[in-house]
Nucleic acid binder design. Sequence first.
DNA 1: GTTATTTGACCACA
DNA 2: TGTGGTCAAATAAC
Length: 337
Amino acid sequence: MASCGGAGDDGGRSPPAVVYDDLVEVREHAATLQTMLQGSPRVLDMDARELVKGMMAKLSSAMSVFGSTSGGVEASSGRKKRSATASGPHRRSTSRRRSKSPFINMVTARTLNDGKTWRKYGQKYIHASTNPRSYYRCSHKPDQGCQATRQVQESESNPSEYIISYYGQHTCKDPSTFRSLFIQGAADAAPPADCSNLISFTSINGAAASTSTSAFAHCVVKEAVDLHPMLSSRFSNYSSSPPVQEGVSSGSPSPAGHGKFMQHAGGQLVDVIDQRTSPLTVGSAPAEYWPVAGDAGAGMDSFPSPPSPSSLGFMSGSLGGSFGNSIYDDDLFGFDS
DNA sequence: GTTATTTGACCACA
DNA sequence: TGTGGTCAAATAAC
């Protein structure tokens, strides 16, 4: 998401302290919002909006602390040059006429992980540019014909940043597509008794916060599934052959599609907190191209792509959280700790 | 064996 | 004709 400027001036405090304060503030805002939603038959839109805005800013701030340290580690390995005999009689005969997708957005980010799954299909040194430009297309293009592409180029002024240009809209039915639906579904439903700790951080230490986050993710997903059986069935189909990057736990297939769904969506929601993407600046783009703009992704429709252990590990490592307390945690995280 | 990445070649477009 | 975007064989990684 585009930084909402929530980080602000933290006076040189340590990142954990900043994150903690932000989370506390989010909790307070959430509590206020809860009161408003429950107590008042007619909530003033502006009040609720302001609260949510503040919560989002703080979450962005907290996430940026971690996102800035993770960096965008692009999987690259030294591969031998292919032999010069590649060019030959069997070059493709199909037309290469470009069907350039419309420009959508340009962001500057510290990481390449924007929640979508991309397949790199080219890299090229562009004239008058010292850094190569990498070309990515949506990994769902082969199976769903998604036309979304992006171009990534390392910033010349700041090598730790990437300038990412997006072309074409995602037409794929990536699990991330349903994220806003999850939230909406959960919001529409009466809060279940066993999810009373959804936003109530029952303790002020990081461990409790993490556990609550896990429970939150699970409950929201559960509500979404209950409300939208379609999702479950769709995931059941989807899980037949998901891209490796898609799942949180791609290594251990779940016996039921529902379980698989829980793993996907649960991991996604948790990763909203552990959002590694931290766009710094956002170029002009029509809002309609960003279906969930304004929510946790703020345009960076998020589903964690590489299920990197480190990205989840931060929850239990940096914050000292203890996943596994909940019976659902094993479904969410396949840790071998 | 399958999947993802690398990289030179091909080709459209300005 | 030069530049940039895409293709696809080769190859590494899993």
